[in-house]
Design a protein around this nucleic acid. Structure first.
Lengths: 204, 204
DNA sequence: GTAATTTTCGAATTGACAGTCGGAAAGTAG
DNA sequence: CTACTTTCCGACTGTCAATTCGAAAATTAC
């Protein structure tokens, strides 16, 4: 028989292992991150990790899944606030920017690790569900915004890739640069959307 | 005694190995790329690779070095044509875009592999010389362009990161999207620079 | 208490892979 | 043809790291 407390403690230990894995990832990268390193960082023996997770891969997949789930939930709550495609799109980017500036290491992991986890069967990429939903929403907002002349009239897929890249560049490329501020973020969004007629809400 | 022909044949075999390594990299990623795989792809026995290269690392470093050298040379030749910071900057991006569309796999490697080759001592990162020169030129052009009001008045380092990211997004993010056309490239450059006063040359 | 269950982990085991070795094959010179 | 150089490679070695094993320690139930 397992009590509620036991379940909670179990869950806390899982979280402790996940946090240790994240720190090792930051220090060593995903390929160099070893189970020995994670075990030491989390304060368990190596074999104990296998009591809580199936494999090294499962640890990183779980980090991705829960992270993208969080992102998706925040996107969902933004969509509940009425607005034009453009204001909603900008609100999502600003919310993301805000989250990233709070915890750059974790979001760096969320955005970069998927490209480094090669050769996973699709059904194991459990974070993809939420990731795709978010990109789907963004693409939809862009398409609506283009239809309503709020955005430049270009292929929405390319526009999404461009904006995604720009975002990625601002936050993750370049090793030691200063963090981006809210003001700069607004400046870039303004600039990006400068061709259209509707003014953006850039006050925080 | 070695004849000229022998030297040329040796060089061709080196190239064949490099090309094989590139194909394996595309298929498996840099960490999963094994010497056995490269040997098979290039049509040699594994031990023969070590007759031509010191190590696996040297193979990939050499691919990067020669690739960035080519890029740098094309940038240099663009700089010899007189123009404003803005036209030169745009010309460099267009030239890069053109190269990338000719050989996406190779340029994907040139832009992505450096972030995956971790823990190399600085002196072994032989491609950095040309890479830094190119970014230095771009940053300089942005700074001059900002001073001359050809670009929006923001921190040049952030602008470079943003543009670099945008570029990266257009060409490398998103898995199976269609290739970007010259027209779309022009459209994006126009849009990017829309805040300023000077019209761009977008005819090819 | 002590039997049952849960949690822990050091010590093997296993598989993958970079790099080496010793010699064979192929090519060249005279 | 023979001596010499260049090129090639299958089999082996050593290392590193994921995963498993078997049992000990800690906790819980009665």
């Amino acid at each position: 028989m397992v009590t509620q407390r036991q379940l909670e403690e179990r869950e806390m230990r899982r979280q402790r292992i996940l946090q240790g894995a994240l720190r090792v990832y930051q220090r060593d990268g995903i390929e160099k991150a070893t189970m020995d390193g994670i075990a030491k960082e989390a304060g368990f023996g190596k074999a104990t990790l296998y009591y809580y997770f199936e494999s090294k891969e499962e640890i990183f997949v779980e980090l991705l899944r829960s992270g993208w789930e969080q992102i998706w939930e925040s996107v969902e709550s933004i969509l509940e606030v009425p607005g034009t495609p453009r204001t909603q799109f900008a609100a999502i980017l600003k919310s993301l920017a805000h989250r990233i500036s709070r915890d750059p290491a974790f979001y760096g992991f969320l955005f970069q690790a998927p490209t480094q986890l090669t050769g996973l069967p699709a059904e194991r990429q459990t974070w993809r569900k939420h990731q795709n939903r978010m990109y789907g929403v963004l693409r939809g907002l862009l398409e609506d915004g283009i239809a309503q002349e709020e955005f430049p009239r270009v292929d929405s897929e390319l526009l999404l890739r461009a904006i995604g890249g720009l975002f990625h560049g601002l936050f993750f490329l370049g090793t030691g640069g200063q963090d981006i501020t809210d003001e700069n973020m607004d400046l870039f969004l303004d600039n990006l959307f400068s061709g259209s007629s509707v003014a953006m809400e850039t006050e925080s």
